[in-house]
Amino acid sequence: MAITTRQQLSFTEIKSSFAYLGSLLSQDVVDTAQSLNWLHAGEQGHAELTLRGERLLSTAGYEAQLRQALLDYIDIEHPSWVQNATFGRSRVISFAGTQIAQVFVEAGLADGTDDAVVAFWDALAARARGQRDDKLTQIGRIGERLTIKFETQRTGRLPTWIAIDNNADGYDVLSVVDASDFKRLTIEVKTSTQGASGFAMLTRNEWDMAMESDAHVFHLWSLRDQSKPQLAVVGNESMLAHMPVDQGRGVWDCTKIPFSSFIDAFGPPKNQPPGS
């Protein structure tokens, strides 16, 4: 697209004058730039950057440009595979096809959990849900990051952030029991900015996972004051007292548990044992 800022050429002239743009056929590049609304024909018939194209061209860094290009492609083309974003990035990359999957790799999105990478996948998941901004997801990510930090300090080992790759597993973070016991500890994270007035929405899948795991805890993060987060580490036995049961033909699917149920367990994060 940078060629349009240096020369006044029509789309036909670009295609006839340049067989390739980089390693790509110029016709494919021009057609894609038009379909994604990066270029349009100006009053004189010359190829000109649109506002979307100017934004893409002004984005600093190759990876950042690729990420913006992916979002533009998704917003315009609405590919069916984007619906998998609600299940995590591994599902998206598996269904997106080889070429698109390679773009995810080159954009630095296939792994890693830095802020920009997480923000991209959350933006993609929001689009899959038909939303541009998902405040609850953002709050949930804060709690998950706090759990990653807490578990690293508690065990001396960096846990695995499961939810960023696949949120269908029924838990968010995979850690270990403690610094001397490397048995798997699965952790479901629930976060609220409402303090004791907040609640945890727990799905049947999450509870089933908790019961199947040899070692499982719930991290409840109260972010009423985000500068002083409060944590309650709740074990399965304590959570069980507040869980619904199936009766007759009725089968529960999701339940809402008040944070106030565990009010005495909340406090500043400290190296407390699992399920204390």
Rank of each mutant, 00 (worst) to 15 (best):
R154W: 06
I139T: 14
A125T: 03
A125V: 03
D134Q: 05
L158V: 14
A126V: 02
E151K: 03
D134V: 01
D134Y: 05
L124S: 08
V117I: 15
A119W: 10
R129K: 15
L158N: 08
A126K: 04
K135L: 14
F120Q: 08
I148F: 09
A123T: 15
T147K: 10
F150V: 01
F150W: 14
F150R: 12
G143Y: 08
T155A: 02
T147C: 09
K135F: 11
R157L: 09
L158F: 10
I148P: 00
R132P: 00
I139D: 02
V118R: 14
L146T: 06
Q131I: 09
Q153I: 13
F150P: 00
D134E: 09
Q153D: 13
D115K: 13
R145S: 10
V117F: 06
A119D: 15
W121E: 10
Q131M: 14
Q138D: 04
T155D: 01
R154K: 08
A126M: 03
Q153S: 13
I139P: 01
E151I: 03
W121K: 12
L158W: 08
Q138L: 10
A126T: 02
L146W: 11
Q138F: 00
L146N: 07
W121F: 12
R127Y: 04
V117W: 07
R127V: 05
V118F: 06
R132M: 11
A126C: 03
D122Y: 02
L124I: 06
I142W: 01
A125H: 05
A116N: 14
D122F: 02
E151H: 07
V117H: 06
L158T: 15
D122E: 15
R154P: 03
A123D: 15
P159E: 10
T152D: 00
L146S: 07
K135H: 12
V118T: 15
G140D: 04
R141G: 01
D133N: 13
I148T: 05
I142S: 05
R129Y: 11
D134C: 02
D122I: 13
L146Y: 09
T147H: 09
T155W: 00
K135T: 12
G143T: 07
Q153T: 10
Q153E: 15
D115I: 08
Q131G: 00
R127G: 02
A125L: 03
L124F: 01
A123V: 04
A123R: 15
A123I: 04
R141C: 01
D122T: 13
D122P: 00
W121S: 10
L124T: 07
P159W: 12
L146I: 08
G143H: 06
F120S: 07
R154I: 05
T152Q: 09
R129N: 14
P159S: 11
L146R: 11
A119S: 15
E144V: 06
G156F: 04
R145V: 01
D133E: 12
G140C: 04
